[in-house]
């Protein structure tokens, strides 16, 4: 039911109790069913059920096929990026613009009152008074949840430090479904920095809904954290640890590469030892299934050679493109223009 306006309340105050009840009943029956996404914050992938994930992906598919240039006309998105971002920020802003909405915001905390020591809570409370929806990234873990306490406008988390990046996970799932035709029962290899990479943590957690077989390829010092493995075990998801990419190439449906980040290594000699072990070259693809696709959250450094780009296995640029449709779907859903 749409909220009662001041005029509604003034008018109803002169009615009898029975008439008020009758009017409210009529209003409720004529209102469209409320979507479970309407007004909702998207902060952590763990808060989305399998059905909700599928709803987002279905809307993203529809929006990719049929653009909706007026869907969010007269709505405004605040784009609050307290730390640098290229793909996430630009795709959020493009998503809103291509749905007919307006965008305001900043791409650098240095130009905001944060520099004058304003708290995140105060900043978001004020921004929430200007915008209908807020897309944000912040270096502190938990910042998106804190922001959601400051405003009743929906918060879309575009990354809070090393914690969550749910829209990346949704676009990863969308891409897997698009290139494999299904999300169910796939053999998915996650490769590289599995210890610190939030992308692979959230993806592994979201895949729990789709019964995958997972391969974790990483040096021992960068393997998947035990709390994720415990989660997988609890849901009877099969996973195996490997140290070499070659060991998983023949069986994988998806190879998900990540960058090994030198700055994370406590031991620089260990970094020097492993940094070039996880470099994917064209020759290594020979045993792969013809339908195998390679994904990468980007940016890449040298772990994914350019010679792979023209092969049919490369799918990382499509993956980055898909961020647009998934973010459009989320904007439409939380603003109530799309329904579950």
């Amino acid at each position: 039911m749409s909220p009662l306006s001041k005029e509604d309340i003034d008018r109803m105050s002169s009615l009898s109790r029975e008439d008020i009840l009758e009017e409210l009943k009529t209003k409720m029956l004529s209102a469209p069913p409320q979507s479970p996404f309407f007004g909702r914050d998207i902060i952590s992938i763990k808060e989305l059920s399998r059905e909700e994930i599928i709803t987002v992906l279905n809307h993203a598919t529809a929006l990719k096929q049929t653009p909706q240039p007026e869907l969010l006309k007269n709505k405004v998105m605040a784009s609050c990026f307290f730390e640098p971002s290229t793909r996430t920020r630009l795709s959020f802003e493009t998503a809103m613009t291509r749905l007919g909405g307006g965008v305001m915001g900043f791409a650098d905390a240095g130009v905001t009152s944060t520099k004058k020591k304003e708290t995140l809570y105060d900043s978001m409370k004020i921004i929430g008074q200007y915008a209908d929806v807020i897309a944000m990234r912040h270096p502190a873990e938990g910042a998106a949840r804190r922001a959601a306490e400051a405003t009743d406008k929906p918060i879309l988390n575009g990354g809070d430090g090393a914690n969550q990046h749910p829209t990346q996970t949704l676009l990863d799932l969308f891409t897997i479904q698009e290139c494999q035709g299904t999300l169910e029962g796939l053999n998915i290899a996650l490769i590289g920095d599995l210890k610190y990479g939030r992308t692979v943590h959230s993806l592994a957690q979201a895949l729990i809904h789709f019964n995958p077989t997972l391969s974790f390829v990483a040096p021992e010092s960068l393997q998947m954290p035990s709390y994720i493995c415990e989660d997988l075990k609890k849901h009877n998801i099969s996973y195996t640890f490997y140290e070499r990419i070659e060991e998983v190439m023949a069986q994988a449906d998806i190879i998900y590469m990540t960058r090994i980040q030198g700055e994370r290594f406590p031991d620089k000699m260990e970094y020097e030892r492993v940094k070039d072990v996880y470099v994917l070259t064209k020759d290594m693809l020979a045993p792969a299934k013809p339908t195998m696709r390679i994904m990468h959250p980007l940016p890449r450094v040298n772990e994914l050679k350019e010679e792979i780009d023209p092969t049919p296995h490369a799918y990382y640029f499509e993956q980055a493109h898909n961020g647009l449709y998934v973010r459009q779907a989320l904007l439409g859903l939380v603003l109530g223009a799309l329904h579950a």
Binding site: T119, Y121, A140, E141, G142, A143, R146
Partner: peptide
């Protein structure tokens, strides 16, 4: 964690994982 960057109350979800209690931060998870 944001709770160490701003003046705010903390909140932890408590679970009984075997012998020891586990505490999950409501913010940084």
């Amino acid at each position: 964690c944001i709770s160490n960057a701003e003046k705010m109350d903390t909140m932890f979800h408590v679970s009984n994982g075997g012998e020891h209690l586990k505490f999950t931060c409501h913010y940084c998870e």
